[in-house]
């Protein structure tokens, strides 16, 4: 147990606590830090870049709560109803999830490129157009993500007692009715947990934005984590970046607290 505690304290606990402390200072990363109270936090809420990034994270969250969740639920439910090739489908859907984000980004950068691939055929610059860039990056990230949801939902759906479906079918319920009356209520804990994790991860999303657009063009894909990264290592405002990290942690904390509260008041099992 001791090794785990030690490595955890050094890598996670000490930096996390320092982050909270630095967030109240004007630390540049080098040299001394001066205590400036809540200045970083008040600056943040007046910062147009911050609000822009936060808004993109909210749009990102909405996208990821709808598109991959719907694809995951649909894919998993369809797989419970087929007999042949189920394992093969499951493996195929899961493969994009194990492809490294740098490579997935590269795959889609060349596919969407206005010089080659689909972008050329359609005459659209997916990653270079301010109005399309955020959606395109989210689309690429979703490509790597939705198959994971299929597999998790499928695992959850396979533990449903098949007699329930049998009884529903006897009563004349079709596949759609069975999905909403049996499947969804049965997998609700998994569904709620993945919804929770989707929200948390959406506020931390970094790789695809950083690799594909670096937040551009003109800030149209900037999210909190890329803004934080620029502040920390580009403009050397480590104190300000720490404050952003704390705000991101607070957002996750609030989401988790709401989830736990709902679970408690509704008496869901863990």
């Amino acid at each position: 147990m001791l090794p785990l505690v030690l490595v955890n304290i050094v890598v996670i606990l000490i930096p996390s606590v320092s982050s909270v402390i630095y967030s109240f200072t004007d630390w540049s990363g080098i040299g001394n830090a001066t205590f400036i109270g809540f200045d970083n936090y008040t600056t943040m809420f007046g910062d147009a870049d911050f609000r822009n990034a936060l808004w993109h994270n909210i749009l990102w969250t909405i996208f990821f709560l709808i598109v991959p969740m719907a694809m995951g639920l649909f894919g998993a439910y369809a797989l419970t109803r087929v007999r042949r090739f189920r394992l093969l489908f499951r493996v195929a859907y899961f493969i994009p999830y194990i492809v490294a984000s740098v490579v997935s980004a590269s795959i889609w950068r060349s596919l969407l490129s206005p010089d080659t691939g689909v972008g050329k055929i359609l005459g659209v610059n997916f990653l270079g157009d301010r109005n399309l860039a955020l959606g395109s990056v989210a689309f690429v990230n979703n490509w790597a993500w939705w198959g994971f949801l299929v597999v998790v939902f499928l695992a959850s759906m396979q533990s449903i007692n098949p007699n329930l479906y049998e009884a529903a079918a006897m009563d004349g319920a079709g596949p759609t009715r069975q999905f909403f009356s049996i499947t969804m209520p049965s997998i609700r804990p998994t569904f709620a947990f993945l919804g929770l994790m989707t929200i948390i991860w959406s506020f931390l999303s970094f790789d695809y934005v950083y690799i594909l657009t670096q937040g551009g063009p003109a800030g149209s894909t900037d999210v909190l984590s890329t803004l934080l990264y620029r502040n920390a290592f580009g403009t050397l405002q480590a104190g300000y970046a720490s404050a952003m990290g704390v705000v991101m942690a607070l957002i996750s904390g609030i989401v988790v607290a709401v989830y736990l509260w709902i679970r408690k008041t509704r008496n869901w099992e863990i």
Partner: peptide
């Protein structure tokens, strides 16, 4: 505690960790 730390945003401690 482990559950909390495994879901803590890495961005929160990235900056101090870098200087540490």
């Amino acid at each position: 505690y482990l559950l909390v730390t495994s879901s803590l945003p890495t961005q929160m401690f990235l900056v101090p960790l870098f200087y540490l």
